[in-house]
């Protein structure tokens, strides 16, 4: 039996961006790989080659106390670039790429344990606003240099390590069907029934959970997230994957408006009820059931 519910894999995008692609060995292979930026390629090559190698860049110490300010803006500029953070033993912990290196380093030293942030090496392209490919190529060349020397990626860049770049994006919204072109083998009502019973907490909202299209949906998502609830979301406005859901769900739940929150297969209510339960401190108990 096939189960027509599909989840998006978009949340793996962050991890994918850390995957190391083979370096473009020659300018010609670069043009093959990135035809649209052919025009800018010579400039990009110049800036990358102008950046020092990871091993040759000089480390800038990061003060241990968060109250102490970072070294001057010449050594850690508030500009686009790549950077590597080293622990007190001089081992590379994380290789980063940023539109504002100074702000990123500042962010790391606040969030990451101090024994991982002792110094930073920085490479800043000459241009004020370098092309993204300049930055990614610089990052790749440092990463390849490090892997060639040590045989592994820095700990903070290994997939699943959230010390430096935080947990992956919010989970994707669930979809009832793979798309409108697919002929459903079971009634939509049955799909809804299965979905709310197989997921402990389900919020049917207008828009995606990362960008709700309605203030009430937004409030419900905010409350659930604030309570650390692990919930599934379904975008009832997604006509491609959830066609017909709006009307069918109203009948299924005997509830005429959205958002709708289900816990353990039962409708708990909409925005008013969830808000009121949150105010009374009743939500935690509900989600522990």
């Amino acid at each position: 039996m096939t189960f027509p519910m599909a989840t998006s894999t978009a949340s793996t995008a962050a991890a994918a961006s850390l995957r190391i692609l083979p370096a473009p060995a020659t300018p010609s292979s670069r043009t093959l790989r990135f035809p649209p930026i052919l025009r800018r390629a010579p400039r990009a090559l110049l800036s990358v080659s102008a950046l020092s190698k990871l091993s040759e860049a000089s480390p800038v110490p990061i003060p241990q106390e968060p109250t102490q300010t970072l070294p001057d803006e010449d050594s850690i500029p508030p500009r686009p670039g790549v950077y590597g953070v080293f622990d007190p033993a001089g081992d590379l912990q994380f290789l980063g790429i940023s539109r504002n290196v100074r702000a990123s380093v500042e962010g790391h030293r606040r969030k990451v344990p101090a024994d991982l942030c002792a110094s930073v090496k920085v490479a800043i392209p000459d241009e004020e606003t370098p092309d993204k490919s300049v930055l990614t190529n610089a990052w790749k060349s440092w990463m390849e240099e490090y892997i060639a020397a040590t045989g592994k990626a820095p700990p903070g860049n290994v997939a699943g390590n959230h010390t430096w770049i935080g947990p992956p994006q919010r989970p994707a919204d669930l979809r009832l069907t793979p798309g409108r072109h697919v002929q459903l083998t079971v009634p939509l009502e049955q799909l809804i029934d299965r979905l709310v019973k197989e997921n402990k907490v389900v919020a049917f909202i207008k828009g995606s959970r990362s960008a709700p299209q309605c203030g009430f949906s937004q409030r419900v998502v905010g409350i659930l997230e604030a309570h650390g609830v692990d919930f599934a979301s379904v975008d009832i406005l997604d006509e491609e994957h959830n066609h017909g859901l709006r009307e069918t769900l109203k009948t299924y739940s005997n509830w005429p408006t959205f958002p709708q929150v289900f816990v353990g297969g039962e409708l708990v209510g909409g925005c008013d009820i969830i808000s009121s339960m949150a105010e009374k401190g009743e939500l935690a108990a509900l989600f522990q059931k």
Binding site: P256, L267, S276, M277
Partner: peptide, 27 residues
Amino acid sequence: SLVKRHRMVYDLLTDELNSGLHAISIV
């Protein structure tokens, strides 16, 4: 329960919900 109370209100307003009433916030 809260859900039942809201349903009672919604049920009374079915005609309105079917004729352009979009959302109501209920206490």
